[in-house]
């Protein structure tokens, strides 16, 4: 079985059905990028995978364990899935080091020394070892996002979900975050990324999933989607977005 299996997810907010039957799989080591117009349920999809948002219908499996089952210990599942938010969501009252350490100490029950070592290693990995004692308010957006990636990495996740990780960043800061993500992908991390960064998608993704109006319109390797998509809508969207964002990356 694939590492992540998503089967027929549905989610409705009031009158609006945001997810209308989404299914796909993610193998270990794969990086898949989800693209599509805003408001088409991409973020909701990610949040349904670790049940930060409860889906109305559909099932999710992580490593053979059914995430969506009421009998599953969702806390243990969430500890295996890393989540990087658009707004970083670093704990405002804690230093960068404490942010990365908190999960290790409180969720994994690690001792302080071991947790500190591990946390420092992850901070170094994202290039911010020297900012260990800084508070989030003292860091730039790009730095905050990198710390939040370190925070996710420290938990040794089987899979990391990225919810538009660079959308809230000033343009000059986007590069440093994408660089970290590229390195992660190349190191073999299993990643599911929602983004508008086409350059990143094109160069790093094993497969691109194009979503619109709550369903998957088309999915396939970047070469196929960018040069010869099956569905005309895909071509139209890609053309528009490449014009607007450029092919940076």
């Amino acid at each position: 079985m694939a590492l992540l299996v998503v089967e027929d997810l549905h989610k409705r907010y009031g009158k609006e059905e945001v997810l209308r039957g989404v299914s796909f799989e993610l193998e270990r080591g794969e990086t898949k990028v989800i693209i599509g117009p805003s408001g088409t349920g991409k973020s909701t999809l990610l949040r349904c995978i670790n049940r930060l948002t409860e889906p109305d219908r559909g099932r999710v499996w992580l490593n053979g364990v059914e995430v969506t089952s009421p009998r599953t210990n969702i806390y243990r599942i969430r500890a295996q899935i890393g989540f990087v938010f658009q707004d970083f969501n670093l704990f405002t009252h804690l230093t960068a080091l404490d942010n990365v350490r908190l999960g290790l100490i409180r969720v994994k029950g690690m001792g302080k020394r071991e947790a500190t070592e591990r946390a420092m290693r992850e901070l170094a990995r994202v290039g911010l070892a020297d900012k260990a004692d800084a508070y989030p308010a003292q860091l730039s957006g790009g730095q905050q996002q990198r710390v939040s990636i370190a925070r996710a990495l420290a938990m040794d996740p089987k899979l990391i979900l990225f919810d538009e990780p660079t959308s809230a960043l000033d343009p000059e800061l986007i590069g440093e975050v994408l660089q970290v993500m590229i390195e992660l992908a190349e190191a073999g991390m299993t990643m599911l990324v929602v983004t508008h960064e086409m350059g990143f998608a094109r160069s790093v993704a094993d497969e691109i999933i194009f979503m619109e109006k709550g369903v998957i319109v088309e999915q396939g390797p970047p070469e196929v989607l960018f040069t010869n998509p099956r569905v005309p809508r895909t071509a139209e969207f890609l053309r528009k977005i490449t014009e607007f964002y450029g092919e940076s990356g």
């Binding site: 670790n50 930060l52 806390y75 243990r76 599942i77 969430r78 500890a79 295996q80 899935i81 890393g82 989540f83 938010f85 707004d87 969501n89 670093l90 704990f91 405002t92 908190l102 999960g103 409180r106 969720v107 939040s148 925070r151 996710a152 938990m155």
Partner: peptide, 13 residues
């Protein structure tokens, strides 16, 4: 902010 709780939950808390 609401995101603080979301981040904590996402770690498995």
């Amino acid at each position: 902010k609401r995101g603080q709780a979301l981040a904590a939950l996402s770690l498995g808390m």
